[in-house]
Design a protein around this nucleic acid. Structure first.
Lengths: 371, 371
DNA sequence: TTGTACGCGTTATCAG
DNA sequence: CTGATAACGCGTACAA
């Protein structure tokens, strides 16, 4: 009998030790070893002496179960598929995946990832390939909040939509940021600081449509309107943008400045706000002294910019984490005890330096707005 | 016999069709079906009539091989592990993973991902967990270019280091950006534009150490020095920064401006350059009219900033892609025909608007520097 | 040219 | 309490 540690230290890739090896070394049956190692020794009334021998044998040989063969037998692979439409461009994916990774690891699952690049055919292939690997479930993530067509391939197994709502009827659960409440939050920041007149919107607004099929845009707008109306304040104006990039924010703000002097800007995301900053600087206006700015997302930009941006953060990490939790909880549960269909994740406010307090006679300032 | 498509359209999750089903339906043996479907029908001289029947049967039933059971049999899982120290904070990971994903998909592999958060224990667990899933190989990626301790767990299988070099002796292959050449490129941009006097470094420099164990810093610096010396130009000065964040770039540049009026700045990354921009603006200096700026990385920032930054790009996508290629090629190859140990990926120059041409009598300006 | 039988490493069933 | 034995789905020597 070679001392343990000998085979472990071999440079050459040694064959992995199997359950049979562990059992043989412990002088017991494979069955006994299996029960002990799966923690069901008590339940099966395995003698504590045998149990000790098995445990020792496993430890000494550095035994690790072969998940592949276990999957073949049990049908569960301890594996989850994460497929998104775009992983690369925005920091969105990074933090979402981070949250998903943490949640998965806590429950001993590994994550497959895939990217569809918006191609439905690729999406189908990816989902099928993952099912071929017998994933326990699939998270289908969208880069920006919207309604998506649920691929039929998804119906072959468990699935959760992340940052997306199913188009049409579907019982598939969704995990989303609470954009409406975020809109209210942004508006309240301004209201609480005494702003009332001269609040302008950059990115979207009543007169025009919001970009593409973005749900975030309509919900943020709705939340803003709700909070403002509740306070008896109305929007002074809005400049819509077809796309939410710095360049567009710059142009929109310049356009706005030609007509009116704003007291505060609600930018529909940080990139627009970044553009707005540049336009304000060009016009000799100072943030927040002359103009207050609030926005959404909490992009890295928000804390790089001077003064740092007050913004309502997308809870990337929490979104990823919640998606995995919903997926895994759904697997364990009986179909009878259904979970709610859509899970809204709160968007926290990051108070920084871009909003200043103003006092105006005309402004009613409710310190707390009850909803 | 039910018409095909019937079982496919069932709402209830139907059991997947197996190879045995396909064979039975085609009226042939499993072996024959297996050979046909693995494309070795010719080789095994299966009658074309049988081949047609098998193919039809597979198509009609929507047969998909069970990769799990195949893995158990063959030992290969069509799966690669991608573990990095940090996936979330920088846009680095996104594009690297994108490249890895593409390369993997082209060769019918799926990617597991994991994040160590810099914790060696977590790293070991992750690698072992992936080996438990019988991955064909593992890419160990680092967020910033540096030397890493190769975890012993990695030696149980194939592996490639990405954006990292092994500390100490190791035969493990590495894939890295060519930072030294990038340094030369940055310097040449300035030289070609006629700059000679007044070139300052922000982020690192001769007098001080570079941040942490960053390889990028020393290699960029080395490249810059080489190119400059070759042109008979010497650095006017340098302000090192302990960390490469906008705030530090801002401070470093302010500090520099107190002493000297620079003609050009080489910032060690775009975030530093972003800070430098702010400091220059504060001082009433205009880019590129008064001061030219070059930097590294091609962060998204570089094209958001005004004027847009001329920068030497990190080839994120290509790095990820190359890592997978090296890994997969290494698997197929015999140990005899070894590949080179380290693979250098070129860093392309992105010419934008932050460098202006100057003409000075003192400057020798070699249009092409032969190396 | 085709079919039979075995093994990959586990889990699970069912007699001792 | 334990130990054969049968799956899980696929690939492949080996026999027919």
């Amino acid at each position: 009998m070679s001392r343990d540690g000998h085979e472990k230290s071999r440079r050459t890739r040694s064959k992995r030790v199997t359950l049979a090896d562990v059992a043989r070394r412990a002088g017991v049956s494979q069955t006994a070893a299996s029960f002990v190692l799966s923690g069901r020794g008590e339940e099966m009334r395995i003698s504590s002496e045998v149990e000790a021998r098995v445990l020792a044998s496993a430890r000494e040989t550095g035994y690790r179960p072969n998940i592949v063969s276990r999957s073949l037998r049990t049908g569960t692979s301890q594996t989850i598929g994460f497929v998104s439409d775009t992983v690369a461009t925005t920091p969105f994916a990074g933090h979402v995946i981070w949250g998903a990774l943490d949640a998965a690891r806590e429950r001993d699952h590994l994550l497959f990832i895939g990217e569809t690049e918006g191609d439905p055919e690729l999406e189908r292939q990816l989902i099928e390939t993952m099912h071929d690997r017998r994933v326990d479930g699939i998270v289908l993530a969208s880069m920006y909040t919207r309604k998506v067509a649920v691929p039929k391939a998804l119906l072959d197994g468990r699935a959760v939509l992340l940052n997306a709502l199913p188009r049409g009827r579907s019982s598939i659960p969704s995990v989303l940021p609470d954009e409406t409440e975020a809109g209210r939050t942004a508006a309240r920041v301004l209201l609480d600081a005494g702003h009332a007149d001269g609040i302008y919107l950059i990115g979207a607004g009543p007169p025009n449509r919001v970009p593409k099929d973005s749900l975030a845009a309509v919900q943020r707008l709705q939340g803003i309107n709700e909070a403002l109306q509740l306070a008896g304040v109305s929007i002074a104006g809005a400049v819509p943008c077809p796309d939410w990039q710095p360049e567009l924010g710059y142009k929109a703000t310049r356009q706005l400045l030609e007509k009116a002097p704003p007291s505060a800007l609600i930018c529909f995301n940080d990139r627009l706000a970044f553009g707005a900053y540049q336009a304000l600087a060009d016009a000799g206006l100072e943030v927040p002294t002359n103009v207050s700015v609030v926005s959404f997302d909490d992009d890295v930009l928000a804390s790089w910019v001077r003064p740092q941006l007050t913004t309502v953060a997308l809870p990337h990490y929490e979104l990823g984490r919640a998606a995995i939790q919903v997926l895994l909880d759904g697997i364990q549960q009986q179909p009878s005890e259904r979970q709610p269909r859509t899970h809204l994740i709160p968007m926290p406010l990051r108070v920084r330096d871009s909003v200043t307090h103003v006092t105006r006679s005309r402004s009613r300032r409710p310190t707390k707005v009850a909803l």
